[in-house]
Amino acid sequence: MITFKEAYQKVMDYPLDLGTDVVPLMKSLNRILAEDICADRDFPPFNRATKDGIAVSFSELLNTGHKFKIEGEAAAGVPQQILKNTGNCLEVMTGAVVPENTDTVIMYEHITIANGEVTLNEKVTKGQNIHYQGSDEKKGTIILAAGTRITPAEIGVMASVGNSLVTVKGNPKICTIATGNELVEVDAFPLPHQIRKSNTITLEAALSVAAIEATSLHLIDEKEIIHRELKNALIKNDVLLLSGGVSKGKFDFIPEVMESLGVEKVFHRVAQRPGKPFWFGIHKELKTVVFSFPGNPVSTFANYHLYFLPWLTTSWGLPVTEHNIKLAAELQITPPLTRFIQVKTTWKEGTLWASSVTENGSGDLTSLAKADGFICLEPRDEIYRVGELVNFIKTK
Rank of each mutant, 00 (worst) to 15 (best):
G180A: 00
L16Y: 02
A354F: 05
G387C: 03
L18G: 06
G361W: 10
Q194D: 10
L365F: 09
V257Q: 11
L230W: 02
L62Q: 12
V157E: 06
L90P: 05
S28N: 06
G387N: 11
C89N: 08
E91Y: 06
Q342G: 12
L337W: 01
W279A: 07
V186R: 13
A329T: 11
G249V: 01
L29N: 03
D381R: 13
L337C: 10
G281I: 09
R149C: 10
M26G: 04
T20V: 15
S164W: 00
K5G: 04
I37H: 03
E213H: 14
T125Q: 15
E256R: 12
G77I: 06
E117A: 10
T395K: 14
L365D: 07
K348N: 09
I201R: 08
H283P: 00
N63G: 12
G180I: 14
P99R: 10
R149T: 14
Q81H: 12
S28P: 10
D103Y: 12
S208W: 06
Y8M: 00
F392L: 01
V78Y: 12
W353V: 05
M1P: 07
P190V: 04
C376T: 14
M1D: 06
N303G: 13
A34Y: 06
A205W: 01
E137D: 07
L389A: 15
I325P: 07
L242H: 08
N391Q: 15
M26L: 15
L144I: 10
M258N: 03
T395S: 09
Q272Y: 02
K248L: 13
Q194N: 14
Q272L: 12
A114F: 14
L18D: 02
P319G: 07
E222D: 15
E382K: 11
K250C: 11
C38M: 10
